[in-house]
Write a protein that binds this DNA or RNA. Sequence first.
DNA 1: TCTGGGGTCCTAGGACCC
DNA 2: TCTGGGGTCCTAGGACCC
Length: 419
Amino acid sequence: MSGVCFALVDCNNFYASCEQVFRPDLRGRPMVVLSNNDGCVVARSPEAKALGIGLGDPYFKIRYAFERSEGVAFSSNYTLYGDMSRRVMDTLRTFTDEVEEYSIDEAFLVLRDPLPDLSSRARTLCGTVRRWTGLTVSVGLGATKTLAKLANRLAKKEAGVCNLIEHGDIRGALSEVPVEDVWGIGPRYGRMLASHGIANALQLSEADDQWVRRHMTVLGLRTVLELRGISCFGLDQTPQPKKSIVRSRQFGRVVVDLEEILEPLASYVSAAARVLRMQGSVAGAMRVSIATSRFDEYAYANSTLRTLPWPTAHTGELIDWACQCMRQIYRPNFAYRRCGVMLTALTSADMLQTSLVTQSHYDEKKRAVMKILDAVTRQWGERALHFAREGVGQEWRMRQGCRSPRYTTRWDEVLVVFT
DNA sequence: TCTGGGGTCCTAGGACCC
DNA sequence: TCTGGGGTCCTAGGACCC
């Protein structure tokens, strides 16, 4: 085996911990962070987990018991979590250049330290992140990404570092991990594997290649090889441009009227278009969707995919076309709870510009207007300048009853220590 | 009253072309 | 009774991730 070691660094109870950094008085208390619209639980402090609150539990179902146990709930504050994430990632980059930001609270690293130093290096890393950000992380070390992930799970139990590279009994460790906890094995495959007598990671690593290929596609096969220590997934340091950009949300209340639905739709298009321009892309197609609650007796859901007249990143054009799509799928008299837009067929805006043969419809003038729009938004916030279609009152906006201040990114919300 | 949001990849099957 | 074959593109659906 080569000397390369993958490390998976994962923040413990990330969202909940971010809140506690600025509210140390809440340490040791049951705490949850809620999804958009204060719908369900997306993060829990250890004390909340101990109360039996599950990930994804609808808040209204557990609220009474939770509050009686002195629990505290927060609406999600992605501005804060995003900024805390950046601080953690910056800290990791002081250890090595080989960092892949895998998600908001996780990163893969390649460590090239001599074997005997690996574990202590990982412990140093934990301590540094703790001191610099106030957050605790767990580190899993393994010969492949999948093994590093698995080691990280084991590390959570021991609150710290788990090193599968220098582990006396890897087979024993693998046999402890239920197969559905392996990275790449979800509930569906978990059930399928169980019905074939494969219940843990060790058994999966010993499964027949052909059988796995047939039942779980090449991705499943790669997972199995990785469990055996054969690296199939490399470190991906340069974030690839997104292939699709989605904005879809539940409304804070029911909306019936077509004209009123066009407001959130325009608003989501506007947000998606901003992300689109940020990565220097134009969209060639869009999907617009609308739906009532899944739990509604009179449920309706529909979507339509449209190839755009020309590729663009101009918010106004995208809003127009999205509204046309919506008029196609809208049916009167339903109690709508959500709508959304997906921008796809993304290509580079530069490629468009340099084409000599066809004149681009997303021309200099439109680009200049969008540049100004983005600059104003950066300086003065999302709502400073917007298209009329996005509405003024925005009564459909989602509920965020208990959001914490954006401590680290807004001067007017900075933590006050003395007054 | 109240059940999240944003992504990726793979495969099968149909349409179409030569 | 016999009824081509291969390539490409697109879409829908299914699986997974956080």
